[in-house]
């Protein structure tokens, strides 16, 4: 079985971000980048699938030359090889999904695994658009029925059941669990509660160095297609006004009535 996983390079959520003075994007100086946490979960699930069914895990990333670092991280976790679509452009979900479609048509994997969203812009559209472009069945927000503390998780079993050219996927819905069955090839996006991703081990890091990463310039794949969505401006949320401490209940009521005007 061949599994393709998309991996996005995102700003490290643990570092304070700064917006460029002109509001056109984020300051990249002194920024650190990581693999989108949802994608790490997708990589982990792909590795478990491969270890159960054999085959290979291919990592796909779109973006600047340094995206190679995020591909290497996934290779260090145990994936087999990488595909890097090179571009300095900022991609909207329509362009990203178009480029992915081209690579996937060439690679023809049985399953595409993706994070349900990227933590940088939180659009959550790329997976949905890609499934539509490919004309494949899609299960979004794949989850695990057992808890993340369960023996099932500790023994690193996959939550995706593949047999007879079909895959069953569990999703959490309001007040219950829904189980879907899809024909392969299929596209699956991952929720946080699907697995606990492994760390890249030192031998894994050293092996990753020798694994192949194929590179394609973006425009060779998608011609002059144009984005449908443009980011106009980024700004910080307005600072909250300072709080105050009231001395008693009557004063609280007075403030709520006359200053906050909520009662």
């Amino acid at each position: 079985m061949k599994i393709l996983v998309t991996v996005k390079r995102v700003e490290d959520p643990e570092i304070k971000i700064k917006i460029k003075a002109d509001g056109s994007g984020l300051e990249s100086e002194q920024m650190k980048y990581v693999v989108n946490p949802f994608d790490e979960i997708a990589v982990e699930e792909a590795l478990r699938l491969r270890d159960t069914h054999e085959g290979e895990v291919v990592i796909l990333s779109l973006g600047v030359a340094d995206c190679a670092q995020q591909i290497r991280t996934a290779l260090a976790m145990g994936a087999d090889r990488g595909v890097h679509v090179l571009t300095d452009e900022t991609l909207d979900p329509t362009l990203a999904s178009l480029a992915m479609q081209k690579v996937i048509e060439d690679e023809s994997p049985d399953i595409v695994l993706m994070g349900k969203q990227a933590v940088d812009d939180d659009m959550g559209q790329t997976g949905v658009m890609l499934a539509e472009r490919l004309g494949w069945g899609q299960a979004s927000f794949a989850s695990k029925e057992a808890s993340l503390e369960s023996e099932e998780e500790k023994s690193k079993q996959t939550a995706l059941n593949v047999s007879d050219n079909k895959v069953t996927v569990v999703r959490e819905v309001d007040g219950g669990i829904e189980t879907l069955c899809l024909n392969l090839p299929a596209l699956i996006t991952t929720e946080l509660r699907l697995n606990i991703p492994r760390y890249a081990s030192l031998p894994g890091i050293m092996k990753a160095k020798k694994k192949e990463i194929k590179e394609f310039p973006l425009r060779d794949l998608i011609g002059d297609a144009q984005p449908l969505v443009e980011v106009l401006k980024m700004e910080k949320p307005a600072a909250r006004a300072a709080g105050m401490i009231v001395s008693d209940v009557p004063q609280l009521m007075e403030k709520l009535r006359n200053e906050a005007k909520v009662i």
């Binding site: 670092q69 991280t73 260090a76 760390y199 890249a200 081990s201 030192l202 890091i205």
Partner: peptide
């Protein structure tokens, strides 16, 4: 080196 940076991060995350 890229490997050294990755390794440092892996140790840090784990710890």
């Amino acid at each position: 080196s890229e490997e050294l940076t990755m390794f440092r991060k892996t140790v840090r995350d784990f710890v």
